[in-house]
Design a protein around this nucleic acid. Structure first.
Lengths: 205, 205
DNA sequence: TAGATTGTTAATCGATTAACAATC
DNA sequence: TAGATTGTTAATCGATTAACAATC
């Protein structure tokens, strides 16, 4: 199968979100131009992106909202529930467990782990913080394909190596460090985002 | 002044972080090749990126770590403290207030606001949640250039319009919506990140 | 049919990388 | 000097966009 450019992958999520909204608004058919306008991109980009996966539109008419939504759901892989574990029960880890957005999008956080015995046993949302030593057993008993790394930078590399051994497939990494791993990694780098913003704020003046 | 490509802006932060580490490790001089290796990019990219801002290296020798670190600090704009306000005292807003990473990088969150009266008055970190109606007065009294939008999607557009009127310059947006605004915006889209990851996880099999 | 919009190709734009003269 | 590494140019690569024949 064709290699899909990274920017396209991200936009698939945007298209899906846009289609969901249109569906709720009761729209039956939508043109690439309308989708593009809502997202602030070009209509030819919408059509090109979708064309990596098939022909979903009707010339002269547009795309059937419900149909395209379902197609995108299955293309992205959110037509099923995903079990997620969170490593690190600090601020970020806790916030994710309580975050409604993930639940709504079929990401179920089923376990949270920490190395700090003081945190173990605490309740976060519906979960009890487990000690990191229980991780292996937990992953054996449950189907877990993706994990969140929300530990301090110093522990992140060690954690990703553990996850690799346990057969986890992909990681969302909140630690500000380049992980050396064969796993699929998506980075969320909060302080980098703030720095990027202030650079632009300073320059604009 | 030359337009700096977006990817370069992001990498500036990575370089800065890398230099800080080298500095702590007691390294005096570093070659672009070493920086590149640590970040998983090409050395010519490091040199090209830096060349947008000046000539910081010595041929045959490399870059003086302390000097380049300071230069980057000032280029990015983190040679001073930034006051930040957070709109929305839910999960994400609270987590940010308590997040050490931002404090360490000179981003001071000095106020958190919410429209929900039930949340007003609550203590989060050192802050008391204020009602959104106090926002205007607060921004008048304090120097605030950047804000975080951590409200539900339905409120985000309204909030950014308020911020625009109050003279805020830039926004870190956690709401899953394309904001229509003249302000500088950096997006942090958590569920999109998860979707992007599962797309790749599914494809890799 | 006439008007609209797709899917796709080719042109354009922008970012990355290789290569190398300059120079420490 | 000989070896190393920069700064910069030109080549390459990849992504976006315009344009349009196909077709609903």
């Amino acid at each position: 199968m064709d290699k899909i450019p990274r920017p396209v992958i991200r936009r698939l999520g945007l298209y899906y979100r846009c289609l969901s909204k249109l569906y709720e608004e009761g729209v039956d058919y939508v043109a690439s131009r309308d989708i593009a306008e809502r997202l602030g991109i070009k209509s030819s980009q919408v059509r090109k992106d979708l064309s990596y996966f098939g022909e979903f539109g009707k010339r002269g008419v547009g795309y059937n909202v419900a149909m395209l939504m379902e197609k995108l759901e299955s293309i992205i892989g959110v037509d099923k529930y995903w079990n997620v574990i969170v490593i690190g029960a600090g601020n970020i880890g806790s916030a994710l467990v309580n975050y409604e957005g993930l639940k709504k999008e079929k990401f179920n956080i089923i376990g949270i782990f920490d190395a700090d015995r003081a945190k173990v046993g605490r309740k976060i949302g519906n979960l009890i913080v487990r000690h990191i030593s229980e991780l292996k057993e937990f992953v054996k008993k449950n189907i877990v394909e993706i994990a969140v790394i929300a530990v301090p930078e110093t522990a992140a590399q060690y954690v990703v190596e553990q996850l690799e051994q346990l057969g986890i497939k992909g990681v969302v990494n909140f630690a500000p460090i380049k992980l050396r791993t064969h796993l699929l990694v998506e980075e969320v780098d909060i302080t980098l985002t703030f720095k990027s913003l202030v650079f632009q704020v300073e320059r604009k003046i």
